[in-house]
């Protein structure tokens, strides 16, 4: 048991990966497969958010905006430059880095609270700009002279920009499996990156800063530099995840910038556990399942999510992963006391 706990991260990873790889061959209905692959997508975003927020201590609410930025970049590149989406993902990722650097340069030197407010305001600004973008675009006239679509699609959203292309390879019945493995691949990369960053010198530096800021500073650890690095690195995968999302659905919409999606993803982070390795995956899995199970109460979805976030912040601010750690520590203490008694 103690041995398992020591290597638990690898054991859990191996088991989960095995199950995930075998999943499409277990006779699962298609709609579940579709939900699981979206879960992978969200889990990637939340795991990157966790790096920014939980490890680097940047209270950014722009993660969803970066995700949406990636989705829109992919959509625009595919639609107007007819770019193969596999090329546009890394471009969207690089765009995400640039975008996050701009935000980071503007507010990372400020107190955490300012970061939260400004990143939220930036998301809202993009929402407003796209929502009010209504002028017919000449580029779209070139695609379809009869229609009037604005450059970003405005409040209508934008489609017709391509897909992963699995339909051509795997056929009309199995393309979903292709999308599934693509998303899984992204998530695995996301988790490995998270793990590597956490274990790296940078991860150590952040823990040092968290434990004793003055000492860490006196040793020449610059919080700002590392924060900007983590912010940028996580933005790459977040924006790429946005691109994958767009490619899977074949459409992007203004709701990607909206508060309900932010609430959904923040509840994954909070329920799973901020700053915990497995938190984002746990949170994403639980909330996506809950979303499916309670589908008939979907009118109450945001009420429920809001209350869940509130209750977790009050009673379990470290989330379920933090709760499990606490339980484990308690169990160890009770066990050793029972043995010595």
């Amino acid at each position: 048991m103690a041995l398992f706990w020591k290597h638990r991260d690898f054991v859990i990873f191996a088991i989960l990966l095995g199950v995930a790889l075998a999943f499409p061959f277990m006779g699962i209905p298609r709609f579940i497969l579709a939900a699981v692959l979206i879960m992978y997508c969200y889990a990637t975003v939340v795991s990157q958010w966790n790096l920014v927020f939980g490890l680097a201590g940047i209270f950014s609410l722009a993660q969803v905006a970066i995700f949406a930025f990636g989705a829109y970049s992919t959509a625009l590149l595919g639609r107007y430059l007819e770019m193969n989406l596999w090329y546009s993902f890394p471009i969207a990722g690089l765009g995400g880095i640039l975008f996050s650097f701009l935000i980071g340069l503007a507010c990372l030197r400020l107190r955490g609270i300012y970061v939260a407010l400004l990143t939220l305001a930036v998301s809202q600004m993009m929402f407003v700009l796209i929502q009010t973008d209504a002028a017919c675009s000449a580029l779209n006239k070139a695609i379809n002279p009869m229609s009037c679509v604005s450059f970003t699609g405005g409040s209508q959203g934008l489609g017709d920009f391509g897909s992963f292309g699995w339909r051509a390879v795997l056929g009309g019945r199995n393309w979903m499996t292709g999308d599934y493995y693509t998303m899984l691949g992204l998530l695995v990369i996301g988790l490995i990156v998270t793990y590597l960053i956490t274990q790296s010198r940078m991860g150590l530096a952040f823990r040092a800063l968290r434990d004793n800021e003055e000492l860490a500073r006196s040793r020449g650890i610059s919080q700002y530099k590392y924060q900007l690095l983590v912010f940028g690195a996580s933005a790459f995968l977040t924006a790429a995840a946005g691109g994958f999302y767009a490619a899977h659905f074949g459409a992007v919409g203004i709701n990607l910038f909206g508060f309900p999606l932010l609430l959904f993803l923040i509840s994954m982070l909070v329920v799973g556990g901020i700053g915990r390795l497995w938190g984002p995956l746990l949170g994403a899995a639980l909330l996506m399942s809950a979303d499916e199970v309670f589908k008939e109460f979907s009118d109450w979805r945001n009420v429920g999510l809001g209350i869940v976030v509130l209750l977790f912040m009050i009673f379990l601010p470290d989330g379920l992963a933090g709760g499990i750690d606490k339980l484990h520590k308690l169990a160890v203490r009770v066990f050793t006391r029972a043995r010595t008694a």
């Binding site: 609430l263 109450w300 979805r301 945001n302 999510l305 809001g306 209350i307 976030v309 509130l310």
Partner: peptide, 19 residues
Amino acid sequence: DFETTIIIATFGLGMAMEA
């Protein structure tokens, strides 16, 4: 971390109230 946690908590509360 009251400064941070209260933002998340009231965001949840506000969204629940709005919905």
